[in-house]
């Protein structure tokens, strides 16, 4: 397959690469272009600029991290609704453990990432071993995390050291550090999906679970691992968010609507909710579109409550655009 591509001429190869770019990317480009005149007229802060784009990218990083994790579970035909609460948990624990002490960074980060992965494994066990519908299972674990978190913490807990905030506010080669973080994550996730055996298994299980099982793939393990990755990346998103905020509170995850927005981003990026189709670049485009709309609303000075209404409508519409063609009945 790959050797075939190499043997073709350079022009055909380019066309192949271009075809790999999800169509949604072109939609994003078009939206950016169209917003230039709109912002020039109505913006409160001086129209379209590099600052606008870089700001939009930075704000999208948290959502992008969760959404990449969500891509893995949606690819196997599952879903994770507990991510918003895992983000809260990670953010609160990070600032609570660190308490402004830089030496605790090395303790808190691996611990929290491991915790996120463990929650993902619990979700995976519920989905695969106990056959609980993934929407309900992860809704349930989310509720449990929320309850435990709200019982233990009522407000912002502790704070992260200034060194840790470099993760969100530092600069590298004149660019904001989070952009490099985002690029590295997308490259790694895309490598896993496209170039590794595990990636191929993900698509196979999502496409047809029974066929994958008959072909000798351990479907249970693949689904479990996908959930573990989603949990891990949700925790990572919480770790990034807390470096932006300086301190974590139990509501930072749900307030960001990361559960719904991550699902919407993945679906907008061309993935099927039933599994088997989708990819990291599509998800990234989905995240950027949502982030772009958000930045646009901010620039236009739209009321925050009205913004919430529009967000709800956009999420429904975004999922609908892709699900409307499905002939299957949904629950």
């Amino acid at each position: 397959m790959h050797s075939l591509i190499v043997n073709l001429g350079p022009r055909v190869r380019w066309r192949r690469i271009l075809r790999r770019v999800p169509p949604i990317f072109w939609a994003l480009m078009l939206m950016l272009l169209l917003s230039v005149p709109l912002l020039a007229v109505y913006s409160r802060a001086g129209g379209m600029s590099w600052a606008f784009i870089s700001n939009m990218l930075e704000r999208s990083v948290t959502l992008a991290i969760v959404a990449v994790g969500q891509t893995f579970v949606i690819l196997v035909g599952s879903v994770d609704l507990s991510v918003a609460f895992v983000i809260s948990l990670a953010a609160v624990l990070a600032s609570f453990i660190m308490q402004g002490d830089p030496s605790m960074i090395a303790v808190a980060v691996p611990l929290i990432l491991l915790g996120g992965a463990l929650i993902g494994v619990v979700n995976g066990v519920l989905v695969t071993r106990l056959n609980v519908n993934p929407l309900i299972a992860t809704l349930g674990t989310g509720l449990i995390i929320q309850g435990v978190l709200n019982t233990s913490f009522q407000n912002f807990a502790g704070s992260v050291p200034r060194e840790y905030q470099q993760l969100a506010y530092g600069r590298l080669l004149g660019l904001p550090a989070p952009i490099f973080l985002l690029a590295a994550l997308v490259a790694l996730a895309s490598f896993v999906l496209v170039r590794t055996r595990f990636g191929a298994h993900l698509y196979a299980v999502g496409g047809n679970k029974e066929a994958a099982r008959l072909a000798g793939i351990r479907t249970t393990r693949v689904i479990m691992l996908a959930h573990a990755i989603a949990g891990l990346l949700a925790a990572a998103a919480g770790l990034f968010l807390v470096s932006r905020l300086g301190s974590g509170a139990p509501w930072v995850g749900p307030d960001g609507i990361y559960d719904l927005e991550s699902i919407a981003a993945v679906v907008v990026g061309g993935a099927l909710l039933a599994g088997g189709r989708g990819g990291v670049f599509g998800t990234l485009a989905g995240v950027l579109i949502l982030g772009f709309i958000d930045s646009l609303f901010n620039q236009l000075g739209i009321d925050p409550y009205l913004k919430q209404v529009l967000r709800g409508a956009i999420i429904i519409a975004a999922v609908a655009v892709y699900s409307i063609r499905s002939r299957e009945e949904v629950a």
Binding site: Y305, V309, G312
Partner: peptide, 23 residues
């Protein structure tokens, strides 16, 4: 008609109603 799973559709509606009421 849009075949959006009801959890997602009604969570979206939740946002719309909450935002609408506060607005």
């Amino acid at each position: 008609f849009w075949k959006v799973p009801s959890i997602i559709a009604t969570l979206g509606m939740l946002l719309i109603l909450r935002g609408g009421g506060l607005y």
